[in-house]
Amino acid sequence: MKNGENAIRFENVSKAFGKRKVLDGITFDLAAGGVYCVLGRSGTGKSVTLKLMIGLMKPDRGTIRILDREITGLDSRELAPVRAKVGFLFQYAALFDSITVGENIAFPLRRRGERSDEEIRRQVEEHLDAVGLEGNYDKMPAELSGGMRKRAGLARALALRPSILLVDEPSSGLDPITAKEIDEVLMGLREKHGATLVIVTHHITSARRMADEMLVLDNGRVVARGAPAELETSEVELVRELFRAEDVA
C-alpha cells in the first residue's frame, strides 16, 4: 500500500441508536500511511466510527470502503479477509482473560493456520519485545497492570502485521506517564510498520503529539479537519474549546 491511496472511505454514513442519531451522513477519506486522530465530546460517535470500520457495527445508511473493498452488507465470514488486514486496540485492551498473555497474542496466529508451536512462540516473543512486555508470556491478563494490558492488546492487534491499526482511547484509564509511553510505542510502530493509524481520543495533547491530521466530530458530522497546527487557529467553537481545555489541563 503506497502513501496517498485511500485506506478508509466513509460515504454519507448514518448510524442511530433508537432515536439518537450518532452519525448523520458523515463522509471522509483517510489516506494510507497517515496517522489520524478523531476527537470530539463523549458520545459523539468516535468509537462507533471505529467499530464501523471493522464491521463490528453496520451503518444504517451509506457505504464504507476499507482498502478499496466495500464492507457494508458483508457477513462475518466475508469480512474475515478484510479484518485480517486491520488491527484493533480496544479501550480496555479486551484480552481474553481465560488464557495467558502469550496465548492471547498467539491466538490470531493459530487462527491464521500457523501450526508449529516453536514458530508461534518465536513470533509472540518478538511481539512482546516490541511493546516492552518481554518475559510476560505465561502471565494471566488479570496479573497485568492497565498499561501492560494495553501493550499486550496492542501486541495482539499487530500480531498479523495489519496495514491499518484502529486504536480506541489509548490513554483512557492510564496515568499521564503511562499514557505517554503508550503513545510512544504507537509512534515507534508507525515508523517501523508504516501502517495507517486511526486513533480515537479525547486527549488533545497526545493527539497533537501524534496526528498527521485531526478530525473533530460533533452532532454526527465532521466539523473540522486538518493538521494540528491548522486547527489551532480554527474558527469552530468546539475546536477552540478542545484546545482551551488542554491549556487548563
Binding site: 469480512l79 484493533f88 480496544f90 481474553f96 490470531p108 492488546g153 495482539r156
Partner: peptide, 23 residues
Amino acid sequence: AELGGMRVTEQIDALESLAVDSF
C-alpha cells in the same frame, strides 16, 4: 456470566476483529 463478561469487556468484539466468527 462468561459470555456476558466477554461481551461487556469487548472480548467478543476482539474475537470478531481477529476474523473469528464469535457466534
